[in-house]
Design a protein around this nucleic acid. Sequence first.
DNA 1: AAGGTTCTGTAAAACGTTTCTATCCGGCCG
DNA 2: CGGCCGGATAGAAACGTTTTACAGAACCTT
Lengths: 334, 334
Amino acid sequence: MAMVSIKDVAAHAGVSPGTVSNVLNRPGKVAPATRERVEAAISELGFVRHGSASTLRAGHSRTIGLSVIDIGNPFFTEVAAGAEDVASQLGYAVILGNSAGSPDKEDRNLRVLAEHRVRGVLITPSGEDPGRLDRLRERGISVVLVDHPAHRPDQCAVAVDDVAGGRAAVAHLLARGARAVAYVTGPLTIRQCVERREGAKAALRAAGLDPADLRVTEATTMTARSGEKAAAELIAQGDLPEAVFCANDLLALGVLRALLRAGVRVPEDVALIGYDDIDFAAASTVSLSSMRQPTYQLGRIATELLLDECDNPDTHAHQHIMFQPELVARESTQ
Amino acid sequence: MAMVSIKDVAAHAGVSPGTVSNVLNRPGKVAPATRERVEAAISELGFVRHGSASTLRAGHSRTIGLSVIDIGNPFFTEVAAGAEDVASQLGYAVILGNSAGSPDKEDRNLRVLAEHRVRGVLITPSGEDPGRLDRLRERGISVVLVDHPAHRPDQCAVAVDDVAGGRAAVAHLLARGARAVAYVTGPLTIRQCVERREGAKAALRAAGLDPADLRVTEATTMTARSGEKAAAELIAQGDLPEAVFCANDLLALGVLRALLRAGVRVPEDVALIGYDDIDFAAASTVSLSSMRQPTYQLGRIATELLLDECDNPDTHAHQHIMFQPELVARESTQ
DNA sequence: AAGGTTCTGTAAAACGTTTCTATCCGGCCG
DNA sequence: CGGCCGGATAGAAACGTTTTACAGAACCTT
C-alpha cells in the first residue's frame, strides 16, 4: 500500500531524485557506481515508476490504442495479437476498444483514448469517417489505418488487396473448368465485400466471360448460418452453379454444410472457396480452399509503423502498405 | 496541437479551475447557471481532460488490466468482449495483455499494468502463481480471477465447473447407450483437462462402470490437427470406442474429420461430444454436440465484480462464482 | 436586526515525475 | 599556480488535475 516514489529511492541511495530519473531514462548519463547504487535501491524498495506522473510531465505516454470492429472475429483477433506482441516488446501498453460496428461506441472509445493521451491509434474504421480521425491527429495522436486504404497521403495504412483476392479466388475456380460461378457475399455496405466482388468480375472478364453472369447472393451477416440460407436459395433455384466463391470462410462453411446435406458433392458437383483462411477452414470435413491474409503481420507492421512515427517523427516516412492475399487450395476445389 | 487545459476553460468561462473540476466530477455541487457556462466553454474549446494528470492527483485511474493466456482462443476472445463492454460502459479503459502461455510475458504484462496504476486486473493465471498476484494486491490493485478457482477467501473469482461439465458430457454419452468411452484431452498439465477427466470418471462411476476403463488419449496441443492424430491412433488400435469425449471443440472437430474420412459414421458408429461450444461446432458438417460455457458472461461478471470492489470497497463482498456449463446436444450424439 | 447556516465559488497546495539550469569537483593546460 | 573545462550530480520548476480550507453572499431563525 505504501507507494514508494522516486524520492524514496533517491534518499535510500543517497542521491537526488533527478539522478534516479536519469538512471531510469538515460542510464548512460550517470556514473556506473552511482547507477548501481540506485538500481540496488530500486529493487530493494520494489519501486515501480508511476506512469501517469511520467506521462504528465513528459507530455506523452507509452500507450497505444487499438480500435477494432469486432474482437470476436478471428481476423481482428489475429491483428490484435500481432499488435500486442510488438507493443509489449517495446514496452508499450495496448488499450483495446471494440466498436462492435457502432460508430457511437467507436466515438466513445476514441474519446477514452484521447483522454489517456495515447501515443497513437491503430484503427479499422467502421463506415465512413467524418473527420474524427483528423481531430485525433490535431491532438498530436498518430493514426495508422488497418485493413483500410489511406484516404490521405500524410498517414500510414496497411491493407490487403481485396480486389486481387477476389480475382485470384475466381480465377482459381475458372482454372478448374468452372464457368457458372456464384458469389455469396455479406452486406454490400462492407467495403471488403464490394471489392472482392469487383475482383471476381475482373477474373470473369479476363477469362472472356461476361461479368454480369456472376450470380450474387447477398447475406445479411457474414456467419455460417447466413451461408446455409444462401446455399438453400441457390439449391431452391434449381440451377446450381459449378463453383461458389464466398466473401468469408464462415459463409463458406455454411454453404458447404447445406450443400453436403442436400446430397451435392463438393468439389465434384460444386467447387467452393472461402476467404480469410481461418483455422477451421482446414479442419472442416471437406477441407476448404480459401484466400489467406497475413492478419498477424498486419497487426505487427501497423504497430511498427505507428511506433516509428511516434519515436522518429523526423525520419518517419508515411507508407501505404498493400499486402497480397494468397490462395490456399484444399479439397473443396480439387 | 495546442492542448487546451482546465485553466483555459476556466478563463473562457470566467470561473476558477476548481469550479471546472467540480463541473467535471461533481456537477451537483455547482450552480446550474455556472455549470452551463462551463459546459459551453468545454465544448467550444474542445477540451479533453488529461487522464494522467487526473490519475496522478486523484491517486487512482479509470483503467483496468486484462491478462489472458491466448487471445487467439475464441474462449478468451469472448471473455475479453464481455469485459470490454462493461468497462467501456462505465468509462473504464481496458489494457490488454496476452501472456501467450509464457509466465515471463505474463510478468512483463503485470509490470506494465502496475506502472499504469490500473484500478484492477482481470487475470486467467497461467500455471501456478508464486505470489505475484499478492504483490499486485499489496500495491492496492484489486485482482479478479477468471476461469480459475480462488485460492484465497479475500478475492473474487469466476469460473466454470469443469468437473460437472465432464460429468454431464459423459453422462449424455452413456444415456445414449454407449459403454466404451474414450477421452481425447489436451496436456494434462492444464487444470481444465484434468478436471474434465475427473468429471468423466465420475459419470462412469455413477453408471456403475469402472472409471479405469476410460480410454484417455493425451494430445500435445488443443487443436484440430491434434484431434486428427488422436483419432488416427484410436482407429489404428482397431478397437473403436462407442463414444468419444473431447476436452475442447477444436480437438473434437479434428476427431470428427478423421473418423468421417476413415468411413466411420458419426453418430451411428461413434458418438462424439466436444467442449466450449464455439461457433464452428454448430456449423460443422455433422453438427457437434458440446458443453456450452457462458464465456461472455464470465467476462462481464468478472468486470462487474472488479469495478464493484474498486468503487465500493466498504460494501464489497468477495464472491467465488461458479457457473455450470450447459449441454448442447446436436447431430453428433443423436 | 444580529447571528447562524447554507450555498457558491476561489485560492493554493499537493500528486510523482522529467527536464532545465546551476553547482561542484577534479584535472589539465598554459 | 590560476583559470578553465567537462563530467557528474543537485535543485527547482513545471506538467494538468483534484482537493482542502476558506471567504462571501444570501437566506433563514429568533
